[in-house]
Design a protein around this nucleic acid. Structure first.
Lengths: 224, 224
DNA sequence: CTTCAACAATCAAAATATTCATAGATACAG
DNA sequence: CTGTATCTATGAATATTTTGATTGTTGAAG
């Protein structure tokens, strides 16, 4: 999974870079339109994160150029700019999604995943960590080729934590992500804890536990 | 729940009118900008469905005028027009949602519901049919004041069928609406049937069945 | 070093959802 | 009319999710 990050703010670019690398993507940063166009021409990226306000031109130019090559690359526009007009133009020109700065990295991760998935069917179809392989298509997990059976919720939680590995994910984030809008902030329950517990129990048989931490007062984290 | 339909195509207007009336809304049709403005000034509507191409002016004028009165009315623009530019302007001026013609009436129903809900909290908070009262906030159902306990899925199915009463809803529609994107077209199962069955059993104690039909080869329908 | 309060883990029970196998109903061909 | 294929209903088994009560942990205040 190759991602091109086109963003002149180096701090932000680096932050996104780290995050996406951690999430298992192979990333490359460019800071200008020119470099971006060159990268796109010479390499085969699955997705591009495109800032609009670049020093040597408007990001839209890059977007247009990319679309002309009828490449299957997904493009997510990252914009701090004035809002809707840009959005429209962008969608018109073929951006697949938008994120307005500032954005949460987990949000970026989710959008990126969705967009790539939409793009070429199922390119991101598995995640692996510490010997476990998650096949996202069919909700299967295995540990060194040996399948183990997780329930859907357990799988969802595992996947989300792996997708955001090295980051602490709060119970609220998990709830929102996995249960969607369903429940009216019913967070007086401990069902997350219970699912996590059951998940851990199943993973534990296959030696794990130390990289699947509970962060007190915050949530859970799976580290690489 | 009062809805103003502003649409010069009388056939379409009538169709939408019928549908929304069936869905429990109180509706009124106007065919021109002028009438629309008059209606809006003299009555208190919860939402307006606004066609853009009106004979005596652009629907946007109506939208602008409405927004100047800082009314809490939700506005959904119905447009057959050229697309994005209109959309932008519309969202800019304060439309709450858009539908491009042609659209499915069930889609309209869903958007309308969402928009009104967003607007003033929970205006559409209950549905009633044949003595049953569905309270959408807290997933409660009662039959002539006597509460009965449906599970979440049962409630969802009941609600969706009632929301689309007098129309046949296919199993696929139900699946997509209630399970969302969750399952990868897993329609080899009969879980809808089972839930419908259990739902019926619970409703049946309180005399019903005849207005809750199975439409062979298509799906289910609840009629008024 | 205790004690307390907040947080998390655990277990078992209850509620819910889903699957599966089978029976019933309906339409259509012959 | 009868047989057959297709669709739907049903009941029971199984799996999953959620709740609730209880116990263990941790960190801060005294």
């Amino acid at each position: 999974m190759n991602i091109l990050i086109v963003e002149d703010n180096k701090e932000l670019a680096a932050e996104v870079y780290d995050f996406l690398c951690n999430a298992g993507y192979v990333c490359k940063i460019t800071h200008t339109c020119e470099d971006a166009l060159e990268e796109v021409a010479s390499n085969d990226y699955d997705a591009m994160l495109l800032d609009l306000g670049l020093p040597d031109g408007d990001g839209f130019e890059v977007l247009q150029a990319v679309r002309k090559t009828k490449s299957k690359m997904a493009v997510i526009v990252l914009t701090a700019r004035g809002e809707l007009d840009d959005r429209i133009n962008g969608l018109h020109l073929g951006a697949d999604d938008y994120l307005t700065k500032p954005f949460a990295l987990t949000e970026l991760s989710a959008r990126l995943f969705a967009v790539i998935r939409r793009m070429h069917g199922f390119t991101v179809n598995s995640l692996s960590i510490h010997g476990f392989l998650l096949q996202l298509q069919d909700y299967k997990v295995s540990y060194n080729e040996v399948p183990l059976s997780l329930t859907k919720k357990e799988f969802d939680i595992f996947q989300y934590l792996v997708l955001n590995k090295n980051r602490v994910i709060t119970r609220l984030q998990l709830t929102e992500h996995i249960w969607g809008d369903i429940l009216e902030v019913n967070s007086d329950s401990n069902f997350i804890d219970v699912h996590v517990r059951n998940l851990r129990k199943k993973l534990d048989k296959h030696r794990s536990i130390d990289w699947f931490e509970t962060v007190r007062n915050v949530g859970y984290r799976i580290s690489e």
